[in-house]
Amino acid sequence: MSAPETPMLELRGVRKAFGDKVVLDGVDIPVARGRSLVIIGGSGQGKSVTIKIAIGLMAPDAGQVFVDGQDTSQIRSAADRAAHNARFGMLFQGAALFDSLTIWENVAFRLINADKVPRKEARERAVEALSRVGLPASVANLYPIELSGGMQKRAGLARAVVAAPQIIFFDEPTTGLDPINADVINDLIVEQVKRLGCTAVSITHDMASARKIGDEIAMLHKGRIVWRGPAADIDRSGNAYVDQFVNGRADGPIKVEV
């Protein structure tokens, strides 16, 4: 047995409240290098907040975020911050493509604006990334508004992976897609994560998606991780919260607040 490896990403004792509403109340989430963790949980339980804190879009009230063993709150210089950000990719729930830019400019955004790659080369890499998510070169010059939701998600995925991130986040990747397109996105996510060998954290309500893209599943409820285990064990978790969520039952320990 080797010594336990440093997690690629770790949230430790993270708390976050908005006003007097406590959203995260001491969340610990280590994710090992190269693993894919899916966080499930009801609406408004703080899944998106968790990801925003992990990626540095929001600061926790207490607790720390470690990336590859480094406490991210200790990053000071702009250069270190840029290097740190370059390790991440993120696919947003609504794809969040820039609507004033074409698809290829969206995909190549980091390459052009942060990495200062020449436009011609950036375009080639963008078209290549688009083809990997099944989008033909002909969409490169279209604007996001001209694409269907499923195609926007794919373009968003291409943008998230084009610069080969080490850690990638997926915020409800299948929400708003029909089951077939959802499954296509799931397959693409699995394929890209495997190809890049990166660490992945996803949040979803969609259990089919969770089973497909997760090595592990964790459930967030009332500001805490109430269960975590291998994705294969999700149906025999022995946890009443997880059972209720997975089976989508109205009665159980989780009360829907109205």
Binding site: L57, L97, A114
Partner: peptide
């Protein structure tokens, strides 16, 4: 509108 559709968050994640 960029804020509402998370495009500003996306800028951050693209190191911009």
């Amino acid at each position: 509108a960029m804020r509402a559709t998370e495009q500003i968050d996306a800028l951050h994640t693209l190191s911009t």
